[in-house]
Design a protein around this nucleic acid. Structure first.
Length: 475
RNA sequence: GGCGGCGUAGCCAAGUGGGAAGGCAGUGGACUGCAAAUCCGCCAUUCACCAGUUCAAAUCUGGUCGCCGCCUCCA
């Protein structure tokens, strides 16, 4: 399979360092607020990566950190800790706040049907590992202590700037940030910050009380759980510089080994062409979106554009995805009820579909193309059901495997209770009776009422009816 | 100012040298008591614009215009 590597700016054949094991590290959220659609896009994208690697037979260890310390509000080397700031606002302990939003994050990701990472390490739980890494860098001459702070010495690492394409001197031209005064070079970044007494999150260190710099946690935790060299490092495009650049510098300077073999970057969600972000305040929270759209609609909406393309948020787009999902769901429901006679043509269709789907996914996770293959499959499958060709069983298996296991789209009766199903059965029989007695006015009235409540009403040949709860829509 | 990306139908979105995928919306038909679902047909002589390379360009090269991201925290 091919993956686009941000370092080389080309699609490269992916082979793990130690097959069949694949180490994947993805930059996780800073837990000081609820997750918005941007988080959704990013983590759905990497979830599909992990699902695809596993279906390709690899044994994946998926690590995604939870940042609960060390993220500052403005410049990377000064300003307030974001968690601390929010904790004061909400009158909570910082760790209480972190727990609250970590739980919220997982709730949203579970709703989107993202698989849980194998390890979700907290930065605050890995202070010793981070201190150890700083000591290593100091010993190797890649860092220096200045007034209780420890900075990484960028001049000691010539490859700095390779990921982002920023050469040394130019990097700071036109920059809008005033640099901390105790740095030797404006490009140097903080590994460890000295804490003032009022700073709530602080730890003992060889340099006095303090806390780790933002970039440090990813290096330390990645090495702890995945070794010095990882196969794939993922993250949002906006973190390419400086975060990922700094990760590479401090990791490779410490170990002398390559840090990540593949860098994957997810593009942004935009709103009216502008980035959806916390600082712009133009974000839509996932749990608010879930009030109006089923999480599977949101997931399909995300997968309809490529992970490296920006996704412009719109209600129209979500509604379109809702209709599209309904098409998949109703096909899956049809397969459930269709009599399944063995069919060579159906088998052939399934084989061809799987092959085309695989080619799309192998090409840098081309989910829009993979979905096009699925919709072709739905049309052909529906035709077979119309003509009584049979083969419902292999078609159901194919759909469950490709759409369900790999793309993570739940197509079958999520959240339906048995009681609702039974009531639907009773109403369907009643409508059938009204229709066979040609009491159409009463039958139509009943349908209108049910539809306004979000139920689907479908009349089958032979006087029977079928009533089902809302399908793809949330209510 | 530096680095990077994008511009494909009404909307969304694949395709990156030789047939313009797919979805949504729309529309004509089959089916239906009427619908819904489903199926069949139609829906970009053309890929922001200009010039060039080539037998052949949405795809490569140069230029123009427009939009966006990063260079400050953000997935």
């Amino acid at each position: 399979m091919k993956l686009y590597n941000s370092v080389t700016r080309t699609k490269e054949d992916f082979e793990p360092l130690n097959p069949p094991f694949v180490g994947v590290y993805v930059c996780g959220p800073t837990v000081y607020g609820h997750s918005h659609l941007g988080h959704g896009k990013s983590y759905v994208g990497f979830d599909v990566l992990v699902r695809w690697l596993r279906s390709r037979g690899y044994t994946v260890r998926y690590v995604q950190n939870i940042t609960d310390v060390g993220h500052l509000t403005d410049d990377a080397d000064q300003g307030e800790d974001k968690l601390q700031k929010q904790a004061v606002l909400e009158k909570l302990e910082p760790m209480e706040l972190a727990e609250k939003y970590t739980a919220s994050y997982f709730r949203d990701m579970d709703a989107l049907n993202n698989l849980r990472p194998d390890v979700s390490p907290r930065a605050s739980g890995h202070i010793p590992e981070q201190i150890e890494l700083v000591l290593k860098l100091l010993a190797g001459g890649h860092a220096y202590v200045s007034g209780g702070n420890v900075y990484f010495d960028v001049s000691s690492f010539p490859r700095y700037g390779r990921l982002s394409g920023r050469s040394g001197e130019d990097a700071m031209a036109g920059t809008r940030v005033e640099t901390a005064s105790d740095k030797r070079d404006p490009r140097d970044f903080a590994l460890w910050k000295k804490a003032e007494a009022a700073h709530l999150l602080q730890w003992n260190s060889p340099w006095g009380r303090g806390y780790p710099g933002w970039h440090l946690e990813c290096s330390a935790m990645s090495m702890r759980y995945l070794g010095d060299t990882i196969d794939i490092h993922g993250g949002g495009l906006e973190n390419s510089f400086p975060h990922h650049e700094c990760e590479i510098a401090q990791s490779e300077a410490a170990t002398g080994k390559p840090f990540a073999r593949f860098w994957l970057h997810n593009n942004m969600v935009t709103v009216d062409g502008r980035k959806m972000g916390k600082s712009l305040g133009n974000f839509t929270l996932l749990h608010d979106l879930f009030d109006r759209f089923d999480p599977m609609v949101v997931r399909l909406y995300i997968l309809r554009s490529h992970y490296r393309s920006p996704l412009d948020f719109s209600d129209q787009g979500l509604q379109s995805a809702e209709s599209a999902l309904e098409r998949l769901v109703s096909f899956r429901n049809r397969l459930e009820k269709a009599p399944s006679a063995p069919s060579g043509r159906a088998e052939e269709l399934c084989t061809g579909t799987t092959k085309a789907f695989t080619e799309a996914m192998d090409d840098d996770l081309n989910t829009p193309q993979a979905l096009a293959v699925l919709f072709d499959f739905v049309r052909a499958g529906n035709t077979m059901l119309d003509t009584g060709e049979g083969g419902a069983e292999p078609m159901a298996e194919t759909l469950d495997s490709l759409a369900g296991e790999i793309l993570g789209l739940r197509l079958r009766g999520a959240g339906r209770s048995a009681g609702v199903e039974e009531v639907c059965g009773v109403l369907a029989r009643l409508r059938g009776v009204l229709r066979t007695r040609k009491m159409f006015e009463e039958a139509d009235d009943m349908r209108r009422s049910l539809e306004s409540l979000g139920f689907k009403v479908k009349d089958l040949p032979g006087g029977e009816s079928e009533i089902s709860p809302g399908g793809a829509s949330a209510h």
